Amino acid sequence: MTPIPSRTHLTPLVRKYLDNEGAEVESIRVEPIDHTSGTPSTGGLRRVSGTTTCGRAWSFFVKSLHSARHWVNIGVIPEPARTEFVAGFPWRTEAEVYTSGLPLPPGLRLPRLFLIDDLGDERLDLWLEDVRAAPGEWDLTRYAAAARALGRLAGLRPADDSRPRTALRTYVGQLVTQHALPILRDPALWRHPLVAAHADPLLQMDLDTLARRIPALLAAADRLPHTMAHGDAGPQNLLVPADDPGRFVAIDWGWQDPVPIGFDLGQLLVGLAHDGLTEPGELPVIHRAILAAYQRGLAEEGVPAGQAAAGYVTTLVLRSAFTAIPVERLGEPVTDDLHELFRKRVGLARFIADLGLALPPDTSRT
């Protein structure tokens, strides 16, 4: 059971939230929020809300962060690499973003931060603004607006040459090479009814071809211009606030090492697709729309946009091609809904593989 925070703990937060030094907490409600624990640093999500003695409502979104050693899925990391993974995983990144004072372009903001509560044992809670999202689906207009803002963000934050550029290589080495590729190369995967029903005969071979190109893709990514970025800019992490639908509230910030230009577009493309909310046939038009808008955003900040396409596709392949098929769900009972998810995710793998195979030998050129 999720513990209920004390009034002593909540009172200063509620007073800050309401900008009322005399506010007193009356009622308290804690609502756990379901989430998929895919990010090793996310320990839990909950909404803490209530009223004051004067009847005013208040609400916080609380995100628990922790070291990767507390991750419930740490077992997917092979034992020999686990210690290195835990030591190198930047679990405090999101908390650091809120205190960094990073520049943000028009149309993009952070949720308001009320408290970083250090719980000890490499755990902390972020007490954040509870953003009420506007209704509406992610259509091409919304995708383009988000991509333009991400392009401007990259343009505002050129990479500092003194910072390490190892995050992408570490990710690929641990979660792709050591974990995903052995599964993709197992013939049993391709005979499984959830995969065999939807994968074309060439997909396994094409993913293996891309896997053999990983060293060249990483080298090409290294040669591209680098920027700072959001790091996990899926639609789920770009909230559209109901009281200001012309802007995005960026949450769940990820990698804060320099990344190749165009990096954020990969998660923008695959975010809803991972949840089975994007038809494979919709991916090409989304792909074209977000690339054009991102390039426009870069240009608005005076940054050459010519290599954004190469950075986008190269990092999309490295980060998402080999993990598009949700192999972690193969042990579940086979249902119509699960078949639908695999149909869409296999279609995502096919689309990304086609983009990767179309990259020129020197992917630093566009």
Rank of each mutant, 00 (worst) to 15 (best):
R288K: 14
R319W: 05
L184E: 08
A23Q: 06
D275W: 06
L355T: 01
L203K: 08
L239D: 10
A229N: 13
A233G: 06
D125V: 06
W255S: 15
K16R: 15
R46K: 14
R7K: 15
R288G: 12
G311T: 10
T278V: 15
G151S: 04
A308H: 00
W255H: 13
H230L: 07
T39Y: 08
A81L: 15
R15K: 12
P78I: 06
L140Q: 00
E31S: 13
R82W: 02
E84C: 11
P260E: 05
D130M: 11
G120D: 06
V97T: 09
L184F: 02
D34C: 09
S100M: 10
Q174H: 13
P103K: 05
R345T: 06
V48E: 01
F351R: 02
S364E: 04
A199P: 04
L269R: 08
T177V: 13
Q174M: 14
G246A: 09
H179M: 15
P241M: 11
D34A: 14
G107S: 07
D125S: 09
K63E: 02
D160T: 08
T52A: 01
G254M: 12
V334Y: 05
P103W: 03
A87V: 04
S37I: 07
R15E: 10
L359I: 13
S320M: 11
Q174L: 15
L65F: 04
A324W: 02
P32V: 11
R343K: 08
E122M: 05
L210H: 05
G75Q: 12
P135Y: 04
L115N: 05
L113Q: 05
L239H: 06
L13S: 06
I116V: 15
D19E: 15
T278F: 02
V176W: 04
L104C: 09
Q256K: 12
A180N: 09
A154H: 06
K16Q: 15
A146D: 01
P326S: 06
W190V: 08
W91F: 03
I33D: 02
D34I: 11
G155L: 00
E279Y: 11
P32E: 10
R7H: 13
T177G: 03
G107C: 07
